[in-house]
Structure formats: structure tokens, C-alpha cells
């Protein structure tokens, strides 16, 4: 069952301890490794819980009734947690909780994971500088983390996660406090990452459709749609009340279809579509 090149989730159900509501309900899905998977859904749909299962927080730190099987490559977050944890990084919803709480400067905060893993000082210096540049935090390196704005704090949280060069990156709503420019920069940066399996929970449906290889839609703990963003957005049930990208709304209004009742969901598709319309 464990395909080395696949993420596979089979019959995954989960209920938190001392709780009667099933948070995740019989989820079956697979995707190739090193792809970007966008997870969307409304409040309390089970997005954060799914992330916790993928990161092994459930059942290693939070108990409950976990059924089914999850494999990322040949590793299982349940059984091989300590090995998997070395390759995985998680950005929590609340960036404040992401911080070690024990760093005087942004630079020390970013270095925390590397120190824990016994990386040598020269490598630490280089990686910290590198990651800070990617997250536009170079000017803040000597500041205290508590002096940062919400958006900067979220970028710091991401920086602490990517500094270890994880093979698997789980991002739980990483842009909620960023301004539009910061968010755009973040998604542009995310698209450039190679050789990393990325799970990203976000409400920024426009941005997700630009970069995600796959979208998974959760409604009340059930995985109701999975596939490319083009397939998923075109098959959304209005009852789920999930937002659609502006490109899609516009294309639908203008009847710019890609054929077979499929409307474009990102700029590239739209461009192709409008181009076709013109050449007709």
C-alpha cells in the first residue's frame, strides 16, 4: 500500500478524545510527492485536524480515536513519527505559538531548530541569512520577535519552518495576518519551491488556484472534492458556500469557457481561453 512516490490516505477517520463528533470522516485520497496541495473548506471543516494528522501531532501529542492509514512516501506519521518529524515542518495558524518563546532576536529564533539539530555555526549563519532574505526579514534580524507586526510574525514563523529545508511542509493558514502585498510575495515564493511536498490550508482561493497542483475540499470532516484546481472549482456545490476565484467568476460571467463547461480558475488558463476566443 505504501507507495514511495505517493501521499496516500485511506479510510482516515478521527474523533478527539472525550468528544462525540467525528472531525474527519472516512477520507480517501492520494497525491504524488513533491506537489503543492491546497486544503480548503469552511470553519470547523477539519482542516487543522487533517494537518495535525499529517504532521503526526495526532496521535503522538493529541489523543483520540484514529482509524485508517496515512502514508507520506514510505513513512507513516503515526508509526515513524520521529523520523518523519525530522523531515517535516509545520506552520501553525497562530504565529505567536510558533515561536520558541526564548529568543532575543529574530536571528536566534530562526536558528532555534538548527541548534536543536546540532548544525554547525557557519551553516547556521548562512542558512539564517538565506531564509531571512527569502522571507524579507533581513532588516529585522536583530530585532526582538515581539516587536514584529502580525504579517512579519507570520513570515518569521514560515522562516523558522523552512530553515531546516524540510521535505514536507505543512502550512495552516500562513497568510491570515499578511497585507495583500506580503501575501502575493508569499505565494509567488511558494510557487518557486522545488522538491518539497507542501500542504497548505488557506482561504486565499485565488492564490491557491494559481499555485496548487491539487485541491482538497473538506466539508464537515468529509473530503468532498479532490483533484486539480480546474476540476475542483468547476465542481463545487453551492451549498458548501466555498468561495471561487475572481478569474473563474469573471470567466463564467463572460462565458469564456475552456470547453466542456469548464471555466478557467487561474490567470494562465484565462489567458489561454481569452486568446482562443480572440483567434476564433
Amino acid at each position: 500500500m505504501a507507495n514511495i512516490q505517493q501521499i496516500s490516505i485511506t479510510h482516515l477517520s478521527f474523533t478527539y478524545q472525550h468528544d462525540t463528533n467525528t472531525v474527519l470522516h472516512d477520507i480517501n485520497v492520494s497525491a504524488p510527492l513533491n506537489s503543492i496541495i491546497g486544503i480548503i473548506g469552511n470553519h470547523n471543516a477539519g482542516k487543522t485536524t487533517l494537518c495535525r494528522v499529517l504532521a503526526g501531532i495526532i496521535p503522538n501529542m493529541m489523543g483520540g480515536d484514529l482509524l485508517g492509514d496515512v502514508h507520506i512516501g514510505n513513512l507513516s506519521p503515526t508509526k515513524d513519527w520521529s523520523v518523519l518529524n525530522r523531515q517535516t515542518d509545520f506552520v501553525l495558524q497562530d504565529p505567536n505559538s510558533q515561536l520558541s518563546g526564548l529568543a532575543d532576536t529574530v536571528a536566534d529564533e530562526i536558528a532555534f531548530d538548527l541548534l536543536n539539530h546540532g548544525v554547525d555555526e557557519t551553516t547556521i549563519q548562512r542558512r539564517v541569512a538565506d531564509v531571512a532574505a527569502q522571507m524579507q526579514l533581513t532588516a529585522q534580524l536583530q530585532q526582538s520577535p515581539s516587536s514584529l507586526s502580525g504579517g512579519q510574525l507570520q513570515r518569521l514563523a514560515i522562516a523558522t519552518a523552512i530553515v531546516t529545508k524540510p521535505g514536507i511542509l505543512i502550512l495552516d493558514d500562513p497568510t491570515s495576518e499578511m497585507d495583500p502585498q506580503g501575501r502575493a510575495d508569499f505565494f509567488n515564493w511558494l510557487a518557486t519551491i522545488k522538491d518539497t511536498t507542501i500542504f497548505i490550508v488557506s482561504n486565499e482561493i485565488d492564490d491557491l488556484c494559481e499555485i496548487a497542483d491539487r485541491l482538497w475540499v473538506l466539508v464537515d470532516g468529509e473530503l468532498v472534492r479532490k483533484g486539480t484546481s480546474l476540476e475542483v472549482i468547476n465542481q463545487l456545490n453551492p451549498e458548501w458556500q466555498i468561495g471561487t476565484p475572481k478569474v473563474y467568476q469573471l470567466a463564467k460571467l463572460m462565458y469564456w469557457s475552456l470547453g466542456a463547461d469548464l471555466f478557467p480558475v487561474n490567470i494562465n488558463q484565462l489567458r489561454g481561453c481569452v486568446h482562443d476566443q480572440h483567434s476564433n
Binding site: 541548534l115 536543536n116 546540532g118 555555526e121
Partner: peptide, 23 residues
């Protein structure tokens, strides 16, 4: 709640790892 989240983060971030470089 913050301390629960922090304890999760610390474990994910390799806190308490035997390889830690001593300051």
C-alpha cells in the same frame, strides 16, 4: 491554549533533541 500550542511547536521543532549544540 498558548502553552498547549507551544508545547506542540517545541516538539515539532526538535526541542530536547540529544544533538542540540550547547550554547
Amino acid at each position: 491554549d498558548q502553552s498547549i500550542n507551544r508545547s506542540i511547536t517545541l516538539q515539532l521543532r526538535g526541542f530536547d533533541s540529544p544533538e542540540r549544540t550547547l550554547a
